[in-house]
Design a binder for these strands. Structure first.
Lengths: 209, 209
DNA sequence: TACATTCGGGAGCGACCACTACAGGAACGA
DNA sequence: TCGTTCCTGTAGTGGTCGCTCCCGAATGTA
């Protein structure tokens, strides 16, 4: 009663191994391409163990998305708010995000693959990713509003949408084209461009670019 | 002998119907999600007809990619080179590309889905898409070099990479988020930002942003 | 000891997968 | 009237899919 349900050591370890294997395969092949047999072979556990830990394939993929997101979040260390200019702060944040994406790309990789698919019965992992993504866009909008307080809401929303969408595109290019693309440099350039646009929008009063 | 091999009317028509059905399904579900049975059901022709027209599934998907690209190219009408300023010309080109992508998104949709996947034996359609894409980036670089002749090659390459990658991201956002995202407006904003960056790079001599 | 819970292991379920063998109808040229 | 080519329709093939059943060993609790 008083004990907080002592965990079986092998249990959580096995769950981690399953998630590791599934994350690798799913980030390579997408939803349909992730076979239970392949996950089982890579993690060394039989299919029945996978189905003991997870209700079905959809549940497994959803867990992969959620854990990949947490892994990515903890790996990403946003810079402290030293007394730089707002522009330098934004650029350093962009660089930090880029570095974390290079190191732990699984979350965004799998998420974008799921996001692009449109099957009749949508996987739960897709909706989870889209929710996380919209939260992230809200954060970007908050930062933009804090740094450029004279911007109206419509401009903020437009800038935030552009900022995260274009960042996704840069990430996709880095994933497909290979490592000769310097993602950190592209993200820094991206941050500069968005900041320029924000200043431009802030100085001219109407919303058109 | 003299006759150029008279085509059977039903043949090319069936091939078109198969490609139409496969394009719809592939743009929704990706490579693995595109089942021959599903294509057969949607186009009303038996699987054996599909395999008469196409060697295997990989051949079918490749044909879908190639035809979708041609369809998109013909649907995209680039504006004439009236006496506008270079900036206005670039913005109008971006808007035209955005409009064509809204109308015929299948090519880029399926292409990006294939591009994100990394299976051991890579589908031919993926390499075809990546080739087309690199050609497109070369075209963008040409235009940039023509409009801003004082830019060095490294800056041109960086700008072209950023321009097409970010455009892909905007397209993905439009596809996932739905039609409440104004892709044409985002592309116009994108064109302005890239043009600003190009002018900035052209005026300062060193390559750092 | 007695019993319940937690997992790993193997075997196998029906459904679906990409793909094929084969027969035959329709349109040609001879 | 043949034979040939083009294409469709039927009826499968072996293999893989997601998923389940059942057993047993290990680890609890009483």
């Amino acid at each position: 009663m008083s004990e907080p349900r002592k965990q079986r050591a092998n249990g959580i370890e096995s769950r981690r191994r399953i998630l590791d294997a599934a994350a690798e395969i799913a980030a390579e092949r997408g939803y349909e391409g992730t076979g239970i047999a392949a996950v089982s072979a890579r993690c060394g556990l039989p299919a029945s163990s996978i189905y003991w830990h997870f209700k079905d394939k959809d549940d497994l993929i959803t867990a992969v998305i959620e854990r990949s997101f947490e892994t990515w979040l903890t790996a990403m260390e946003l810079p402290g708010e030293q007394g730089d200019s707002p522009r330098e702060r934004v650029v350093r944040m962009a660089a930090a995000v880029a570095r974390s994406l290079v190191g732990t790309p699984d979350f965004l990789r799998l998420g974008l693959m799921l996001a692009l698919e449109r099957r009749p019965e949508e996987p739960r992992g897709r909706t989870v990713f889209l929710q996380i993504r919209s939260v992230a866009r809200g954060k970007v909008a908050e930062i933009a509003a804090a740094l450029l307080p004279e911007l109206d809401d419509a401009s903020i929303a437009l800038l935030a949408t552009y900022a995260v969408a274009a960042a996704d595109g840069l990430f996709v290019a880095h994933q497909t084209e290979g490592d000769e693309i310097d993602l950190v440099r592209l993200f820094e350039l991206h941050a500069h461009l968005v900041f320029d646009a924000a200043e431009h929008l802030a100085h001219s009063r109407n919303g058109s670019p």
